[in-house]
């Protein structure tokens, strides 16, 4: 037997083990719905969207906030089955429930929690992430410290619930213990010469992903599914990942 082959096998096995321990990849032992997001899946470890992890989204402009929530809703819609409930926590509710249906989410299956204080938002998100019965937890907040995000990460490692944190206009884009960092912005829609406004179209920028390759894509949301625009993805060098 070739000792080199043996070593690469061993290293591959160990890498898989490390990813599993870090809460990446698909949660073991629990039947969960797979999130299909086309070419983006290539960026993740094991080529599957990591469920049972906390995803971080950052937006600065009101339009990008709407786009980010739309993208989050699109992912939640795929995580949620007919009976699955989802928690949406934020100080001020901005979501128009009727529009959620466009992104494949039944608005009646979303429970909105609107506390008065930022501290309570974090507490409610953490409690939600600890509850195994939920399909997903979405949280809208401003600041998030590393310690706070670590608590949330520990909660999902136990419960395997998927969390989506949307930080709108944070003071600093500090490093947090989330599996991924996304920036979603709305871009001009394509109408093909027809009058009117086209389908929602986003620039999806996966800035950081643990054990994966960050990248940037453009996609449209058409009839409850992603439609990726064929364009070479800009793969960011691994160097930058280490620096971040």
């Amino acid at each position: 037997m070739n000792p080199v082959v043996e070593h690469t096998d061993l290293i591959k096995h160990l890498q898989k083990e490390v990813i599993r321990l870090q809460g990446g990849g698909v949660a073991q032992g629990i039947v969960q719905r797979r999130v299909r997001c086309g070419p983006i899946e290539q960026a993740f470890p094991g080529r599957v969207f990591p469920t049972g992890a906390v995803h971080e989204f950052i937006s600065h402009k009101p339009n990008d906030a709407a786009a980010t929530n739309g993208f989050m809703a699109a992912l939640i819609g795929q995580l949620q089955d007919e009976q699955g409930m989802c928690l949406w926590v934020g100080i001020k509710r901005s979501i128009f429930p009727a529009a959620l249906q466009l992104f494949g989410v039944d608005p009646g299956r979303i429970i909105f929690i609107s506390p008065d204080k930022q501290k309570d938002v974090l507490w409610a998100i953490e409690e939600g992430l600890k509850c195994k019965a939920l399909a997903a937890v979405a949280g809208e907040l401003k600041g998030l410290s590393f310690t706070e995000s670590r608590r949330l990460q520990l909660a999902v490692e136990e419960s395997k619930v998927t969390g989506f944190l949307h930080r709108y206009q944070p003071a600093t884009e500090n490093t947090v213990a989330c599996s991924t960092r996304w920036k979603i912005s709305s871009i001009q829609s394509i109408t093909g010469g027809m009058p009117g406004v086209g389908y929602p179209r986003w620039d999806i920028h996966l800035q950081k992903v643990r054990n994966g390759k960050p990248g940037r894509w453009q996609a449209e949301w058409v009839n409850s599914g992603f439609n990726f625009i064929q364009r070479p993805a800009i793969v960011i060098a691994q160097q930058q990942l280490k620096a971040g």
């Binding site: 509710r93 429970i111 909105f112």
Partner: peptide, 13 residues
């Protein structure tokens, strides 16, 4: 119990 029952909402059309 912690942040008040009126802060929990669910919507129907």
């Amino acid at each position: 119990g912690k942040i008040g029952a009126d802060s929990i909402r669910r919507y129907v059309p």
